[in-house]
Design a protein around this nucleic acid. Structure first.
Lengths: 218, 218
DNA sequence: CTCACAAGTAAACGATTGTTTACAAGCGTA
DNA sequence: TACGCTTGTAAACAATCGTTTACTTGTGAG
């Protein structure tokens, strides 16, 4: 119940395009990346305190000491995960900058249901809810959340007499629904939500998002 | 940064109405209740793994061993917290069984913002998101969540050609928005949500809830 | 080939965790 | 008052945590 993968060594997801990185028995870049991805999954699903560095190293199949070598500390690894996620959020924002509301709703549905993208940035919504208590990582976390809010708020239709503050609050509630759904899905037997796919989530969530962002009153 | 109260002994919140329980230097019932309330707060805000039994005992001002005496284990204390919360949920459901949609929306707003009721059942939404990994407590947690969903689903207006399953999913998304908002509020600087009061939450959330529950399509 | 450095391992470290044990003190009862 | 059970405490327990140290192994440069 503790280990996700068998602790096989194998390759650490080395990309064939990486040239000389194929077949190398020792590949620090691949090892570091594999540790980061395993850490993202563990932290997202179990939280910071429940996750042990030994379980992360075990997922990758390397010694625990490598975590401290590559990331200084468990806290440093967690910070690297948040930074990795923040970059993914920003990349998604720039590449689809001119998306419409329906497209974003679809993305939200995918994010709520996506439980593993392989590259370690699959459980964005869950990871951004986890806290280690450290001040610096807390700022990173809040920054990523607020940038997601901005992205949602920009898509809200213009409504006369509505302050930006109000739009912002409503956009935060949209994000709240997304992270809440992602969180509740972690409870087995919480059906039908726990078993719904992206499409089934996006449909009703779309009603919610549109109502929240296009409403007139305060 | 670790202790919430000064570890003063004082009385453990003994109710003057409790008759002979006033002024007693030793009051096992009050001690047990104080431990339960402190545990609910700690577990809700810090999660199961991050919370130490010593910090809980320190909040109350008693020795750590009393936790094992009264609740067998840390896990037992967590289970007692969930059971306490489940009872609070059921009590709230029966006492206001004939409430309308607006009333429930107001209650949701209060629950999202309520951070301490003193009796230990203040952070219901946060506590029900915390998991210890144990199977039995996981069932308790899911049960409480599903009963809250039922309460919301019962208030959804009748719409022709809409299956109960769809209503249920939408009610779960309403709860998701509530727990998500409660969770995001724990991030300081997540403004304006983090600083909003119950009324400011209830207004936009009401739009959301009504849109989600009264929409026609699936 | 050889050698120096990087990558990875094994084992132990101190600290903290939940839990247990042995003991002190309060309180009702006789 | 004196006794016995309950309530609470102090201290140590074993286990596990994150981290560090000493060591082995692989690999590319000369």
């Amino acid at each position: 119940m503790r280990e996700r993968h068998a602790p096989v060594r194998a390759d650490r997801g080395g990309n064939p395009e990486d040239g000389a990185a194929v077949g190398r028995r020792r590949d620090p870049a691949a090892t570091k990346r594999a540790l980061l991805e395993a850490a993202c999954r563990r932290f997202a699903h179990e939280g910071f305190a429940s996750t042990t560095v030994r379980s992360i190293a075990g997922d990758v199949g390397v010694n625990v000491a490598l975590i401290n070598r590559y990331f200084d500390s468990k806290e440093g690894l967690f910070e690297a995960c948040l930074r990795h996620t923040l970059n993914a959020v920003r990349a998604a924002r720039t590449e689809s900058g001119s998306a419409d509301l329906d497209a974003v709703i679809e993305v939200i549905g995918e994010q709520v249901t996506a439980s593993a993208w392989g590259d370690g940035s699959g459980d964005v919504l869950l990871l951004l809810l986890r806290s280690s208590g450290d001040e610096r990582t807390e700022r990173l976390r809040t920054t990523a959340l607020l940038e997601m809010v901005d992205r949602i708020a920009l898509l809200a239709p213009e409504v006369p007499g509505r302050s930006p503050e109000v739009v912002r609050l409503r956009a935060q509630l949209v994000l709240a629904a997304a992270v809440g759904a992602a969180m509740l899905r972690s409870a087995r037997d919480f059906l039908p939500l726990a078993g719904a796919d992206a499409q089934e989530i996006a449909a009703p969530l779309g009603d919610f998002v549109r109502a929240l962002l296009s409403s007139r009153a305060d």
